[in-house]
Design a protein around this nucleic acid. Structure first.
Length: 261
DNA sequence: ATGGTCGCAGGGCGA
């Protein structure tokens, strides 16, 4: 089973890329972030015509997450129950049953945090604490969980083009990394780190200053796998091809292959 | 480089 996560920076602006990428890579599951779309403007028809089911949790202009799957989606839940009053559409979960055994899919768009110490940064840390509880609960309910998304955290120094220059700014600050570590400690593995990887393997590059051409990037888009799924993972890497297409998202998709029985 | 580009909406915010 091929699963992927991709921050598309507007699903409508990126629809041609999403459809082309689905056709070329043929993932079983694609988790989308930053759809930036209301549900009624989401391009359901085009994606369903490509042979996929779609669940979407959207809002106007900002945020928005979707799950695209070849297999039927059940138990679709929007948002975190502990943040029922939070208007930001950042979490969507659904279940698929390959070989009749459930896999829980969680699609997350973690807050960016803007800058260390800002209001948005404090919101990010509070949000991450709730998300840790949420993923812990998911792990307890479903042994097989894929928690993919834009985590807006670079896990290690090697996930930043120039870690020294970046310092402890947002995406790399110790409290953010500690929050990610707490998530991993409830029973998840960063699929990328299960394998030998090339140096400077990133998933996001700023639109400005020709950052992609110079590979001035960071790895903030993650596929987290519960322990039993990580044992079945045989591949994980970013697919940087779509980042080179015309009018791209600033993020590349990250793909993992799971051998399920 | 206090820079730089996108997408939403249709100005300025968020990233």
């Amino acid at each position: 089973m091929k699963v992927a996560t991709w921050n598309v920076n507007s699903v409508r602006a990126r629809l041609p890329h999403v459809l082309l990428w689905l056709q070329e890579v043929k993932p079983d599951v694609l988790l989308l972030q930053e759809t930036k779309s209301m549900d009624d403007k989401f391009p359901y028809v085009d994606i369903e015509a490509a042979g996929y089911e779609v669940a979407h949790y959207g809002q106007p202009a900002y945020n928005g997450v979707a799950i695209i799957s070849r297999l039927p989606l059940t138990e679709i839940i929007q948002g975190m129950p502990t943040r029922a009053d939070d208007p930001q559409a950042r979490v969507l979960a659904a279940t698929i049953k390959p070989a009749d055994k459930p896999v829980r899919l969680v699609c997350a768009y973690v807050p960016n945090g803007q800058s260390v110490g800002s209001d948005k940064y404090l919101y990010k840390l509070e949000w991450l604490a709730d998300f840790c509880d949420y993923l812990s609960d998911a792990r307890a309910r479903y042994t097989r969980v894929v928690a993919g998304g834009d985590y807006n955290i670079a896990p290690e120094a090697s996930d930043i083009y120039d870690a020294e220059a970046w310092g402890e700014e947002v995406l790399a600050s110790p409290p953010e990394r500690a929050a990610l570590k707490r998530i991993l400690d409830v029973g998840y593995a960063d699929a990328h780190r299960l394998f030998e990887q090339p140096e400077k393997s990133f998933s996001w590059w700023d639109y400005r200053a020709a950052a992609f051409r110079r590979n001035i990037g960071v790895r903030i888009d993650l596929l987290l796998l519960s322990a039993d799924l990580s044992k079945k993972c045989v591949f994980c890497a970013p697919d940087i091809t779509p980042r080179s297409w015309e009018r791209p998202s600033d993020h590349a998709p990250v793909v993992a292959n799971l051998l399920l029985n």
